[in-house]
Nucleic acid binder design. Sequence first.
DNA 1: AGTGGTACTCGGTATCACACAGTACCGCTT
DNA 2: AAGCGGTACTGTGTGATACCGAGTACCACT
Lengths: 108, 108
Amino acid sequence: MDDLTEMLKGTLEGCVLEIIGSEETYGYAITRRLNDLGFADVIEGTVYTILLRLERNGLVQVTKRPSGVGPPRKFYELNEAGREELAKFWAKWQYVSSRIDRLKEGRG
Amino acid sequence: MDDLTEMLKGTLEGCVLEIIGSEETYGYAITRRLNDLGFADVIEGTVYTILLRLERNGLVQVTKRPSGVGPPRKFYELNEAGREELAKFWAKWQYVSSRIDRLKEGRG
DNA sequence: AGTGGTACTCGGTATCACACAGTACCGCTT
DNA sequence: AAGCGGTACTGTGTGATACCGAGTACCACT
């Protein structure tokens, strides 16, 4: 699938929140997870900017731990604000995607 | 529903293409249509920038006609390139939305 | 010593929706 | 006729976001 970047704007951050919410994890692994999900072109730089933003906005708790196979990892967990943001994201997604699907089906 | 602007990036243009594709229409009416669809905060300026972009990218054919209730209207129709772009948009949408839904359901 | 995989940072760019101000046509009321 | 509200398009500038590219650095293995 060719360039998805514009369509991912506003949703990729939510996807990262969801991934963190389901399991404490770190940037490099999140990138691989997104690639496996089908977002093959999402690269590390993009994910790290999102993670820094989440941290700056106080949605995550960060813990640095040694890795054993490379440099230390920064593990991310959602805090209460992060869980609220995630819930808001899915509400928005539900709202938007249902309306776009309706338009697509010609029932708009 | 609060601010949807980021989530609409990359999809709003596709929605406008779909609306034009289903019926020859003009900017002001497209805006009202989007508002009725549930995208209440989309304003005229936004739609007009999209329409100018579509025109610049050669995806539409434009016809100016007098209105009777105001200034003349610029009616938009999809040309062949526009129909191809619309098909590509829906393919992308299908691809992205199905994967995000899968992530949401925990089947990612 | 060199290579490749792992892991994070940072400055800059492009694109997009949006804000805002402006222009202009028309029917209606006062 | 003057003003108002609804209709309709244009153009400049802003902010948020994903992406790019280069750099730094740790570690295992050869």
